[in-house]
Design a protein around this nucleic acid. Structure first.
Lengths: 331, 331
DNA sequence: TTGAAAGCGCTAACAT
DNA sequence: ATGTTAGCGCTTTCAA
């Protein structure tokens, strides 16, 4: 049997309430009593039971985090931002991988509710009607991180993907390629749509009619980037510039190109998206769109704390600034 | 107010005990009753409260995971293995970053106990006496993943670091470098000691007296690898082969070398450690020691489930096989 | 097969 | 400043 608050109360000759007050830092305790209680807590090795506290107080100081894949460098960076701010506000995180599998996502959300998390941070590609439904009827606050719900009805933190993609594509065009290739993830997400929209916008502005052959759907991984490079090379009259929807894909593209004797950026320019650690860990270093993953996670968590504290929030859909980082994969 | 088991019982005209039985899949319920209960659960939208269940049953189906840094590609891979097996056994994970900060680690362990986790997976570099003490007096089972406690008193999952380092170094020696350089992380961990021991063993076997100038202490990051490369180049009469204690460091070393006009592996051979995703995402691809991070996490979690189920475990300190993957950074 | 009832360890009024 | 007490929502004997 473990030491309970009741044991401490008995040993210290006070009531449970007083022990509770001491443990929770309630100022309404005479210093002498506090000391006495603290001593017997120490002596008995008492450790508060957070589960019992959670049941009684209806607060678990725990937030759920649903993430596509923690082993993905993009998401793990987000997770770090989330956990750091959570820690700062005395919350712990229950982390679960969804693999962007709809059933699993829905199940996970429900599990989080069962576990009585005080709030939920959700990351995922496709936000279906069912997702929105389950998230909107949540018993606790929810915030989306680096994921867009087109209904704009759930609080979220993102960057302006369209504008970012537009800028990245424009740079390529300014550098002399009329119609760059766009290598994108095949996932059917709102984020991807916006990146595409930005790409298309840049082309339109340059009076280029969009050629869908130049839009290459790839997987999420480095390997699919390598594959994509091959496809690009088979394009007749293929362009000398490629905009990739992620850094990992961009690296695959670059290496696929290099492995076939092409030089980057001399023969082909490549620009990525995200600015993961990877982008400086390769040669040539990768020019890319800076998406502040850590900050997105941190801000999403901060936003969530505001909701959990019932503070008023001015803007539910936060857009963080992005920028373009020119390194050596572009001229 | 939320729907409770009591509400369901009342609406279904059964006792709470029966509802509980249905929810928990207890077979001692007449099919008709079960159906009736299931219907009203559906109708009322009842969702079991895991916190109340945890208090009553003394099981939370949650395990704590203390990890140095989830944004590190090595640890995030471990975490993925942990979560996958946890999910398989119906556990959730409370994940916390320790930054290998001793105070934080100790505090985190305590927090996990307070949260009444059913078990704990711990990762960290230095396992001090205090760590061992706190972990050994744990109210729940503990397993170490990719971390060594020299007292060998806590269950753990690792590879044979010494043997692995020995093999890696030997390859370099066989390739013609009498006394390779060892670039290691300065962290004072048992794992590092064993890598060093393996390196030293290989040298000794080649009748090389160890030259401590050739053992370079670096940080954990890619950047410190780049720095290390500079130091290596300043070594008079510097060797043509480098064994690096991690892949990330190895990449830094390679690029540091390349940025100074040296070719890998023609001028200098480099072998890494871990076989993170990074190792195939660079050119030249990295030769390295394969450490099965995902499996270490998965096996550690599996081991933990055995302890949590009070199954007997034959071997508490699991050593997983490693291998050497020769790619293009060595000859 | 089902129900009654006693906790699990704590918080939060409410009293004093 | 401190104590009393009624829950929080569920599981788990023990009986029937």
């Amino acid at each position: 049997m473990n030491v309970t608050i009741y044991d401490v109360a008995r040993e210290a000759n006070v009531s449970m309430a007083t022990v509770s007050r001491v443990v929770n830092g309630n100022p309404n305790v005479k210093p002498a009593t506090r000391k006495k209680v603290l001593n017997t807590i120490e002596r008995l090795g008492y450790r508060p039971n957070a589960v019992a506290r959670g049941l009684a107080s209806k607060k678990t100081t725990t937030v759920g985090v649903i993430i596509p894949d923690i082993s993905n460098i993009f998401f793990s960076e987000l997770a770090r931002g989330i956990d750091d701010i959570a820690t700062m506000y005395k919350y712990n995180i229950i982390l679960s991988n969804s693999d962007q599998n709809k059933e699993k996502e829905l199940r996970l959300i429900n599990t989080m509710y069962e576990k009585q998390v005080d709030g939920l941070i959700y990351m995922g590609a496709e936000i279906s009607e069912e997702h929105v439904q389950q998230l909107k009827t949540s018993p606790v606050p929810v915030a989306l991180a680096a994921t867009i719900d087109s209904s704009e009805t759930i609080p979220s933190v993102n960057i302006d993907y369209e504008q970012a993609a537009y800028e990245a594509t424009s740079i390529l065009i300014e550098n002399g390629t009329k119609h760059p290739v766009f290598v994108t993830e095949e996932t059917n997400s709102a984020v991807n749509e916006r990146k595409y929209a930005g790409y298309a916008k840049a082309l339109k502005e340059a009076n280029q009619e969009i050629n869908e052959d130049f839009v290459i759907k790839a997987g999420l991984s480095y390997e699919s980037g390598v594959e994509a490079a091959k496809q690009v090379m088979e394009l007749k009259d293929f362009p000398k510039a490629i905009f990739s929807a992620s850094d990992e894909l961009a690296l695959g593209v670059i290496h696929g190109l290099q492995d076939n004797g092409l030089r980057v950026p001399e023969d082909v320019e490549v620009i990525g998206f995200d600015n993961t650690k990877l982008s400086t860990m390769v040669r040539p270093t990768l020019s890319t769109v800076v998406q502040p993953m850590y900050d997105i996670g941190a801000v999403a968590m901060r936003l969530l704390t505001k909701f959990m504290n019932k503070e008023t929030v001015e803007e539910q859909n936060v857009i963080l600034p992005h920028q373009i980082m020119k390194r050596n994969s572009t001229k």
